[in-house]
Structure formats: structure tokens, C-alpha cells
Amino acid sequence: MTDLPGKAIHDFHFTDRRKKLFVHDQFGPKVEMPVSYYFRNFKKMPELERVAIDNCLGKVLDIGAAAGSHALELKRRDFDVTALEISPLTCEVMEDRGVPNVICEDFFVFEGQKFDTLLLLMNGIGISSTLKGFSDFLKKADTLLNPEGQIIFDSCDIAYMYEDVPMPVSHYYGEIKTRYEFDRELTEWFRWLYLDSDTMTRIAGESGFRGEIIFEDENDQYLAVLTKIS
């Protein structure tokens, strides 16, 4: 798939071009995703993300690290942090920004290290795509965690998006078709997962993890910490 978010982040960092990045989904008009948002510092992060960073422990893997803002804050706090990102273009940006230990690889094939915290922000858990994919994500995560390790991620209940359209009957309502637009190019459609907290907790339990919601905001977003059930 064409890496349009990577192009947008790369252009923003290395050039003076300020073209807009848009997200399309099944619910209506496209929505702009301000590229500058990927470059925010700790003070400009929403409270949910600040709480997530405050709860990181030990050796951290920042999954889907994008431009590296969270990894840079963890570095500032002297964490041993590794930034994992599938986009070569955003990896170039992170390296130029001074993010340590940048690895350009797909999470689902990455191996060989163990971590105390797996961190996924900006609904990074969406890489799971489907409910089954979330179960697969947890199985993979288990291979990367130290015995007392944790997974920290945010997601949200998007039931409110169906006020004017019928709920799907063939799949879970949080499995959304989406695509990016940048510089008059479009990616192919792909699935991105949004998890309500009850469904998330249930699947986590079935996969051997205890789920705890440690923060919720006014936009139906929540922050979860998952730990392995001993």
C-alpha cells in the first residue's frame, strides 16, 4: 500500500511543503489529519497520552511510532526505548530527530527482544484490523513481553458514529474501512479497529491478559493497561 502518511510526515520534516493529509472512512466526508500533530511535544499532547507516558515502565517498545514524539519524550526521561515503525519514510524522520533504536519492521514479524512496556498511542491498536486480529496481536505481544510486562494503548467506542447509519450485521461495528489521501493520491481501503472497552476486556481475558482502564476522556476514548494473568 502506498505510504501516504509517511510521505506527509517526511515532507513536513524535511521540506517547506505543507500539503494536507486526509482520512476517509465509511461515515461521511474526509477529515484532515494535521501533520503537525505528529510532531507535538509533551505539553501539547492530550492528557490521555501524557498519562500513558507517565505509566511506562522499564524497557519500552513504541509500536507505530510515526514521527517519534512519544519515543523522544521517553528518551528525555532516560527510558531505554525502541521505536518500531513499518514506514521507511517516517523511520528516516525519527532518525533525523534523534530517536534512539529505530527499527523499520512490521510488528507482527518483529522478534528477538523482550520489553517491559509495549506502547501504542493514537489508536495504534487499530493495526489489529479485526477482533480476531486483536487476539492475534495479543498472542504476538506475549512473545515480546517480559514476565511482569504490560501493554498500554488507547482506543474508543465508536457506537455513536452509527446514529444515522445502520449497525453492520456481518462484522463487529468497530472494524472500519478507511484510507488516506495526500497530494492528490489515495491509498487502497484497509481495515482499522476501534474497540469498545467491554469487548476489549473480554478478548484480553480470553487471551490471558487482565485489562484495566486507567483513563477516559469526554470523547469516548479510553486508555488501557493489560498485564499477563499469572
Rank of each mutant, 00 (worst) to 15 (best):
I127R: 01
A204G: 11
N101M: 02
S230R: 15
L223S: 02
G149F: 03
M45I: 06
R210K: 14
H171W: 04
Y38Q: 12
T143G: 12
S36D: 14
L74M: 08
V60R: 11
R191D: 15
R50E: 11
A224G: 02
W192Q: 05
I152F: 07
T2R: 14
G205E: 14
Y194F: 15
L118D: 00
K139P: 03
I53E: 03
C91N: 07
T227Y: 04
F12K: 01
E175Y: 05
L74H: 03
L118R: 01
G68A: 06
I229V: 14
E185C: 13
N146S: 12
M200V: 01
D142Y: 05
K59S: 14
F39H: 01
D136K: 10
R18S: 08
D217F: 03
Y37K: 14
Y172W: 12
I214C: 07
D198A: 13
P166M: 11
S170T: 12
M45G: 08
G68M: 02
N219G: 04
E212F: 05
I53T: 06
I53V: 14
G208V: 03
N146I: 02
E85W: 00
C156Y: 09
D164G: 08
A159T: 15
Q221C: 12
E95P: 01
D96Q: 13
K140L: 11
V102R: 03
T187V: 12
S69Y: 05
P166Y: 09
F134V: 00
V99G: 04
S69D: 13
L4Q: 00
M94D: 00
S128H: 05
E206H: 14
I125W: 10
F209I: 06
K30Y: 04
L119W: 06
I203E: 14
R18P: 08
I151F: 02
L223A: 02
H13W: 15
S128L: 03
S135H: 11
P29R: 07
H70I: 14
V169T: 15
T201C: 15
I213D: 10
T90N: 11
V99W: 05
M1Y: 10
N101Y: 04
L57Y: 12
G126Q: 02
V99F: 05
T2K: 14
K7I: 04
L121H: 02
W192P: 00
G208T: 02
T201G: 15
R202S: 14
M122A: 15
